[in-house]
Nucleic acid binder design. Structure first.
Length: 400
RNA sequence: GCGUGGUUGGCGGAGUGGUCAAACGCAUCAGACUGUAAAUCUGACGGCUUUAUGCCUACGGGGGUUCGAGUCCCUCACCACGCA
């Protein structure tokens, strides 16, 4: 019996699936709902782990595919595991490399997001989704696993459920994910069905091959936009002895929340649910309300490096010329290190000049913003005012 | 004063007789980014409009050669270097 993690639910949002809790892990507790900071290559880009901790981040997520390519899981293992290697004291997670099946496969160089703004038309739905092996895609899928070409040097590598778990056991994070296939939102249902069956078989193989008792394994629900597939997937994955659950794959922006609700009604209440790769503010509110405990997303850090600053009124681009002589805080009233010490004009200059400090300060701010948001969300749930808080926040946030 | 080289868009800089509105950079503007191939990517960037395999304008000024000149010749102006 794996007892590596434990979720203690503290407070439920009346009449909905949302809740606060404390997730205990071998490396400390996580107050949920929580935003998981993404540190793909054992580094949160532009920041030190000490920075990340000081911002209130509770948990960091690395990536199996990336760490396998460099520096290699054996190096990380010799260092004492992911957290020890990067000097991050708190809880850690690793993603399985499953998302790279999508990002290096179908989505490769095509500008396809896993989130579809609108439902694709029949014409947009790819007829034969086996096309993943075509074009210049770097990933080829078969029933046993996925063959990748390294994005670094083109060398060929192969992941199977077994190898992904073996690598993740060496990486040694507290929470790890099953190897899954993240399908394109443009895939036809026929293909989604096939991919789902494969992902389910892989989930079982991941469970069967694991050896460590001190790591929690999260199963992943797939099924894309199709509610019946999602429901089926949730039932199957929930029936397996995972310590937690991920909700992955592609969505239509419009009905993402319905899908999440549907899935979380089926997943066991007492175990943590992680919404993979979701991080837009609106999506987080909707996810929390429907019972999601963990989110991870590259958005705050990636957008930070691209000069986009989060504020309660929405996001703005610090690089725009209008900020050139604004000698005022980056975000007025923000308590973060960047806003307390530096001006819009300075940050504008740093970004225009390509100075690393610009990336660092922006990342500090955006992550702080996310951490504050999650904290306020947790507080609002505890104070029975989540829906009010959500409404008020989103009214301002959308008013950009 | 003499000699040599140069003067192309906001800037740098290609182009040396014929699809040249003008490569490529930079800057600027706009857009994208949701389990990170991402300090990245896409588009616009002389003017006009019915936004197009459309029209007009440009290659320091003036003149010339040629069917045709940014490209050759003369001349003027300016810049750089060299020699006085």
């Amino acid at each position: 019996m794996n007892e590596s993690i434990h979720l203690k639910i503290k407070k439920q949002i009346p009449g909905s699936l949302g809740r606060t809790g404390v997730l205990s892990t071998p490396h400390g507790e996580i107050k949920t709902p929580a935003f998981v900071t993404v540190g793909t290559l054992a580094a949160v880009k532009a920041l030190s782990p000490e920075d990340v901790a000081s911002l209130g981040a509770q948990v960091v997520l690395g990536n199996t595919y990336h760490l396998y390519l460099q520096p290699g899981e054996d190096v990380v293992a010799k260092a004492g595991g992911l957290g020890s290697f990067m000097n991050w004291q708190g809880p850690t997670m690793t993603d399985s490399g499953g998302f790279q099946v999508f990002s290096l496969g179908f989505a490769y160089k095509k500008g396809v997001s896993k989130i579809a703004k609108e439902s694709p038309t029949e014409a947009e739905l790819e007829g034969n989704s086996e096309h993943i092996s075509e074009h210049s895609a770097l990933a080829k899928i078969d029933d046993d696993g996925v063959t990748f070409k390294s994005h670094l040097d083109g060398t060929e590598h192969r992941f199977t459920p077994e190898s992904s778990i073996a690598i993740q056991e060496k990486l040694g994070a507290d929470m790890i994910f099953v190897f899954d296939e993240c399908t394109s939102p443009l895939a036809q249902k026929e293909y989604m069905r096939k991919a789902l069956n494969r992902t389910h078989r892989w989930a079982k193989r991941c469970l069967d091959t694991r050896t460590r008792e001190d790591q929690a394994l999260f199963g992943i629900v797939q099924g894309g936009r199709y509610k019946d597939l999602r429901e089926e997937s949730a039932r199957y994955i929930a029936s397996l002895p995972f310590e937690g659950f991920g909700i992955g794959g592609s969505f239509d922006k419009d009905d993402m929340k319905e899908v999440v609700e549907l899935v979380n009604k089926i997943l066991p209440q007492e175990k943590p649910r992680h919404m993979l790769g979701i991080g837009e503010v609106e999506d987080i509110f909707e996810g929390v309300q429907r019972g999601v405990d963990l989110f991870d997303c590259v958005l705050p850090t990636r957008l930070a490096r691209h000069g986009v600053i989060f504020t309660k009124n929405g996001k703005y681009d610090i690089k725009k010329i209008i900020n050139r002589e604004k000698f005022e805080p980056i975000v007025d009233g923000c308590g973060c290190y960047a806003c307390k010490n530096y001006s819009k004009a300075y940050l504008h200059h740093l970004h225009r000049a390509g100075e690393m400090l610009g990336h660092r300060l922006s990342s500090i701010h955006n992550l702080y913003f996310m951490m504050e948001l999650m904290k306020n969300i947790r507080d609002s749930i505890e104070q029975d005012s989540f829906l009010k808080y959500k409404k008020e926040f989103l009214e301002k946030y959308k008013n950009i």
